[in-house]
Design a protein around this nucleic acid. Structure first.
Lengths: 396, 396
DNA sequence: CGGCCTTTGTCCACTCAGTGGAGAAAGTGC
DNA sequence: GCACTTTCTCCACTGAGTGGACAAAGGCCG
């Protein structure tokens, strides 16, 4: 199917598209109230958008006491593909132009198998979603990868946990395969975008989004925009020193936060505790599955295992120490905690909060909410869809 | 004397004023090359600026092979006042509209004497500068204070080292006294603005400016703009934990960077070393002056005193540890070190560099210059002048 | 049902910022 | 003195945007 390739011709049209995306269908009249445009001008721009097909008029809005208005909405046939490649699994979702998730698949997959194998998988998942009827084709795709990205080109750079991905032209290649525009970004940044669009961060201009999964990263939003840094590695907080002369880390240093607390570190510490007989609960799980994961620790903690709880608390304290420093430095209006370990839930959150509120200055923490992300696994894919829609809804 | 109060009427005029400020006098023709405007439009806007008096035409430019062009420059009579209030001294300077320093005074002064006493001093210094003939009056003033500021209102908030300043309406009060527009900001942010305008950071969009004086702070520039944070306390890195269970700090925690390295901490450690007989050089200075300051440590180090050098190196290492974390997080394109301790010079810089390059990931440090600020004590006052000129050179 | 009100959508004359070309003004170089 | 270049001014023209008039469409109420 031939997809839309139109782009807004000017800033007014871009503004309208963003409004329709974020606030849903709207009447001409109400759009006129929000945008600073005369009715005439608005009518002209809306007509042009209708011509491009990006926007359609469907039915009449409810009366506000006079003539009923025609409803304007983004073309309901538009489809975005959101892909969130994690270290150990992939999420693929389809959204409409309002970024509502219409279909969502998740599969375990080791990112170390390399870009070719991963994208084969991603494309087959996308095909499966198409076959399920939620989409006939895609008008754009956003891709999140678990490592730094040279954003303008859409190419991963020196990703420590992604051997074989360095310099792989993700944007170029996927754009070819999918036949639509593609944007690539760090998965953490996309999680931040997702929470900003549809989650807890809707009303905040400056916030941090800490993702604790296999690794640890942090999305930075300044004045509503994602800060990616000079080389695209901003937010790479997993290798900030949390414990002087602590555990050795894959990066070559000692005491990195990631070496002390992350999905991988937690599994390692849990296995050690089990073997040392400090936790019957964990030992039972180790014997049953032949291995332990962060989920096992979460389950054991939920079952009241004190060793598991201690592991989570200590990790939260370490993470809180690092976040406290970032809060002093950046003075955000909100801190969001997300990622795979949100299963650890409020035990983790409480430990982080305690540490941050204790260690940062009152002026910075006084009115600082620290909350769990509310979108879970969909944050990444929604953020991915938003990334590409932001691109397509801007003048070329 | 009646001062100019005109402001640019639109974005084009603002653009022109900024160009004239940053690149100096210019011909109409050359301005036309830089701005995206037709000759006609440019002529109209320049004429209007001439009418306001913000800009004057003086003489003819050199020929470029044809008719000679009239030179356009910012009104050479415009004067900005830049005030940099430190913890232990005040800098006051007068600049022209191109932010060149025409006169500069410095006086020791304890900020804890409170706003009334300090501003009395500042006003008398400003009067002295006026009397010296560099200015007849001021068209605007920028003020830097050593603590967080609620920027839109120009009011210090909860400044730990500035008792008596909390909530004092600095902007309001000084605007009354001086009879001109005033803007207030954290001194560290102004140092960053200064280095951005006329120092080492001229070409960098994202950078950090670490000021080590009586305390430690960090100016954050994102995309060319200063990031002040949600409550104006961004960059307050002096209270990031550098040493677990380290020295107690005035803020109530232990191990804050500021408690281990800053002008005050360095003086304290030096005095202790002197009393313990570890450094004859420092002991001699202690005996001579009855006390020690950071400058004494610098002098002792310059004289080859190993204890003094060790103190500086250790402080640099601590600072480097914190900066390494910030570099991982923020991924700046440049780090500037400034403040009173730049007297410690390259010993300090080397220690910081070593630590940052060792502890941060190669992707973030690969092309990261870490340099000393090149403006010294004038960075703050130039930044202050720039703050107010940015304000006055923007449409009202 | 039929006025009378409100809201919505369309049309159109008018304003105003901005463009680009013509040509005068002011120099340079031979 | 003449040809050429650059600067500056003038002016007709374009095109975006405005705001008012008016038609269309519906609700409210006697």
């Amino acid at each position: 199917m031939r997809r839309m390739t139109a782009r807004p011709a000017n800033a007014h049209q871009a503004r309208l598209l963003h409004l329709l995306r974020d606030d849903g269908p709207n009447s001409r009249a109400q759009l006129g109230d929000r945008v600073e445009l005369s009715r005439s001008k608005l009518a002209v721009e809306v007509d042009r958008l209708l011509e491009t097909g990006l926007v359609v008029a469907d039915g009449l809005a409810a009366s506000r006491g006079g003539r009923r208005s025609h409803n304007i909405r983004l073309n309901p046939g538009l489809r975005f593909l959101g892909v969130d490649i994690g270290a150990t699994s992939v999420d693929v979702a389809v959204t409409n132009a309002e970024l509502e998730v219409l279909g969502h698949l998740n599969q375990p997959l080791d990112v170390r198998e390399g870009p070719v194998a991963v994208f084969e998988q991603v494309l087959s998942m996308a095909a499966k979603l198409r076959a399920s009827g939620v989409a006939e084709g895609f008008d754009g795709a956003g891709i999140g990868v678990p490592g730094p990205v040279r954003f303008p080109e859409g190419v991963p750079v020196a990703p420590p946990i992604m051997p074989g991905w360095d310099g792989f032209p993700v944007r170029e290649a996927l754009s070819q395969e999918l036949g639509c525009p593609v944007m690539v970004d760090n998965d953490v940044n996309l999680m931040a975008l997702g929470e900003q669009h549809a989650g807890v961060a809707r009303t905040v201009g400056d916030f941090l989004c800490v993702k604790i999964g296999t690794g640890i990263g942090c999305g930075i939003v300044v004045g509503g925009d994602v800060h990616r840094g000079t080389t695209g590695s901003a937010g790479d907080i997993g290798h900030i020193q949390a414990v002087p002369d602590g555990h050795p880390c894959v990066c070559g240093n000692r005491g990195c936060l990631e070496a002390h607390f992350s999905g991988a570190a937690l599994a390692r510490d849990a296995a050690e505790a089990a073997r040392q007989g400090r936790s019957p609960e964990l030992a039972a799980r180790l014997a049953a599955n032949g291995g332990l994961s962060a989920a096992d620790v979460a389950a054991a903690a939920a079952a009241g295992d004190t060793t598991a709880l201690d592991l989570i608390r200590e990790g939260g304290t370490r993470t809180g120490q690092v976040i406290a420093g970032l809060v002093s430095f950046f003075n955000p209006g909100l801190v969001v905690i997300g990622g795979g370990v949100t299963g650890l839930g409020h035990t983790l959150l409480a430990a982080i909060r305690t540490q941050v509120y204790r260690q940062s200055l009152p002026l910075a923490t006084g009115n600082l909410p620290i909350v769990l992300g509310e979108l879970g696994a969909t944050a990444g894919v929604i953020g991915a869809a938003r990334l590409i829609s932001d691109h397509l809804f801007s003048p070329a």
